[in-house]
């Protein structure tokens, strides 16, 4: 014992404390400014995975137990309701097909870039506490599934947020209502562009709209695609109120997101579009499936499509 009392520098608690403190500060700086923190985070996430599962398992057991115990009658009712919804959606889709073809033709006439349908993957929200930051969600897909930071996350009703940090088998998503989140949007009716800031409280705020600009409660906001993080044209929110801003030089709008951000359960992850040169290939791949699978009207429109492409 006396030997160790003649303390070497490295044995001193204060020294160790300062070194570890320095490591923490360095980690924070690196994590904030660079991507060097990511491998560390992912390595550690292999250790945290069992903990997340430990919290998840009882919930999943409860869900399956509830499913097993719920009455057959209720399931039947749900089933018929879902079937009705599905047939409605099919009907809408039929109309949409025609509209999409028309839109594509018009776009080609105007020599505009094609808007491909989005490729998405479904993910489930893990119901765990994620600190005091209320406007985040954890989902059950991560680095292993090829997710990337900044990836767009949708709910079935609209835009939900983007991937913020990645672990191996999970990811943290920052929601659009988070006060730290800013989102380039566009008013669908007028094309007016702006930035929607998260406000907490489940709302978005567009702080600086020119007084002369034409915005009304009820206007739909879509993503404008500026900044390149979100693809263009995703439904975001509906404007609920318009007030003069604090110095009354501008007006500001409050908007209510379409996505059900308080009770997120399933989300969709959007994959980036195939790059400009290869846009034709996915289209070619798509056409046979459309002609083969569904209804005759869509096949006729696809047949018209190449002709329309040649004429201009």
């Amino acid at each position: 014992m006396p030997a160790s009392r003649e303390t070497q520098l490295t044995e001193l608690p204060l020294f160790r404390f300062l070194v570890l403190e320095l490591v923490c500060v360095l980690l924070m700086v690196l994590d904030y400014h660079t991507h060097i923190g990511r491998p560390i985070r992912q390595a550690l996430s292999a250790l945290t995975y069992p903990l997340v599962q430990a919290v998840r398992l009882p919930q999943q057991l409860w869900d399956t137990a509830e499913l097993a115990l719920s009455r057959q009658a209720r399931l039947l009712k749900d089933n018929t309701e879902l079937k009705r919804q599905l047939s409605n959606a099919r009907m809408n889709l039929l109309q949409l097909d025609v509209l999409q073809q028309e839109n594509r033709r018009l776009r080609q006439l105007m020599r505009m870039r094609e808007q491909l349908p989005l490729h998405t993957t479904a993910a489930f929200v893990i119901n765990i506490n994620n600190g005091s930051q209320r406007h985040r969600a954890v989902i059950d897909r991560g680095q292993n599934d090829g997710l990337y930071v900044g990836q767009t996350v949708l709910d079935l009703h609209g835009l939900a947020g983007q991937v913020e940090t990645l672990e191996l088998a999970s990811a943290h998503v920052i929601l659009i209502t988070d006060p730290q989140h800013a989102l380039p949007v566009e008013v669908l009716r007028t094309g007016l562009r702006g930035i929607a800031y998260g406000q907490g409280k489940g709302q978005l705020l567009l702080p600086e709209i020119a007084k002369s600009a034409d915005v009304q409660p009820g206007d739909v906001l879509i993503t404008s695609g500026f900044g390149g993080v979100f693809p263009r044209g995703l439904k975001v929110a509906q404007i609920t109120a318009i007030n003069p801003s604090q110095n009354s030089a501008f007006q500001q709008a409050i908007a209510q997101p379409y996505a059900n951000l308080d009770q997120l359960k399933e989300v969709l992850l959007v994959w980036p579009k195939v790059t400009g040169e290869t846009t034709k290939n996915p289209q070619d791949l798509q056409d046979p499936s459309e002609t083969g699978g569904e209804s005759p009207p869509s096949s006729t429109t696809t047949a018209q499509n190449p002709a329309a492409g040649d004429t201009p």
Binding site: E21, V23, V25, M28, R41, L44, T48, E164, T165
Partner: peptide
Amino acid sequence: LLLDVLYGSLLGKHGLSLL
């Protein structure tokens, strides 16, 4: 650090304060 990973917070934030 484990808590930072779990909460998705800045790596080292909880590490530092717990230290």
